[in-house]
Nucleic acid binder design. Sequence first.
DNA 1: AAACTATACGAACGATCGTGCTACCTTTGG
DNA 2: CCAAAGGTAGCACGATCGTTCGTATAGTTT
Lengths: 196, 196
Amino acid sequence: MPADGRVARGDATRRVVLRRAVDVASVDGLEGLSLGRLATELELSKSGVFALFGSKEELQLATVEAALEIFRSYVVTPAAAVAPGLPRLRAICENWLDYSEKRVFPGGCFFFNVGAEVDARPGRVHDAVAAASGSFASFIRETAVEAVSLGHLDADAEVLAFELHALGRAANADAVLNGGTHPYALARRAIGARLS
Amino acid sequence: MPADGRVARGDATRRVVLRRAVDVASVDGLEGLSLGRLATELELSKSGVFALFGSKEELQLATVEAALEIFRSYVVTPAAAVAPGLPRLRAICENWLDYSEKRVFPGGCFFFNVGAEVDARPGRVHDAVAAASGSFASFIRETAVEAVSLGHLDADAEVLAFELHALGRAANADAVLNGGTHPYALARRAIGARLS
DNA sequence: AAACTATACGAACGATCGTGCTACCTTTGG
DNA sequence: CCAAAGGTAGCACGATCGTTCGTATAGTTT
């Protein structure tokens, strides 16, 4: 039933397209993603790429999904393997800063860029991005709640989670916009002060 | 020498176009700004709008400039009139949160959205946005330094300024993406804790 | 009054956009 | 073994993009 056949080939192409799509979208946004551009860069036909997803919106949704998978594998999954409470909270922050600084996506955090792009526009893409972003925010918040209830920290967990998320995103924004790594140092100092 | 003439008329049209342009760009980005769309919505001819600015890039630069003027008049100028140090720092934060929450631009903070759009793309527009963003960051930082040197606060001024800026932007991002005003409440709590 | 400049328009350009249709090939399921 | 299905390409469509050109109009300068 596996066998390198049609379905395998199709999925492989889809994966290739999506890997390029997330990179393009992290720099030029989901609107900057164009079928023609993807097809040219990957040496495929535009209609072939189109047929693979059915519409531009479906391609955008699949791109968000693919980015989410990459994001999870770099940030969430490794952190979830760390001891709950404060250690996990530290891991989340450190993994996230690394994920941004190492430019897993060439334009910095995918969800930061795409989130700012679609935030004020309704639609399925907006909802998908909001859901992804919200689920990560929840992960931070729940970990913060755990850290407080385990006695690792004394703080308002919800505010703390908001602060940590804010510091990471600001570091990403400043570093991508202006270059350099100083914003990450600032964020690490601020996060360290909050988590001690 | 003034007299409502050709130049006055041209400037008036430019102002009308730019007022619309900043609103459009705050939602759809500087790339989503199109000559044709502006012309249609304002009942002007596309070539007329084009001639007013000379190129799309010039229109984008003028739009950034116009947004900066509005931003300054809402956030920076009123805060600069407040006593230096901690009072001014509080005024900056409160003015900024108000500016975002009141939707002076329909898509939330203009520079947040546009900054995320152009952050990873080189060019004159990127530089203009980075300069505007950097000048506001400097304003916060210098005010924080003053607050510390006046003995109003005991903190690392640079880190503090980074934190305050981060909290505001995160509130804007979350509120625009998900709706509601809870993010602003969280930011106010966090900022209050930092400035006491 | 003449020469010049800027606003504004309409029409057209080449390019690119997303999408549809047709056809060909290979794989898959009955 | 044959028919159905899915991947892929080619071609064309209407729309929109930024830009150019020519021109009419009206304010400015000399």
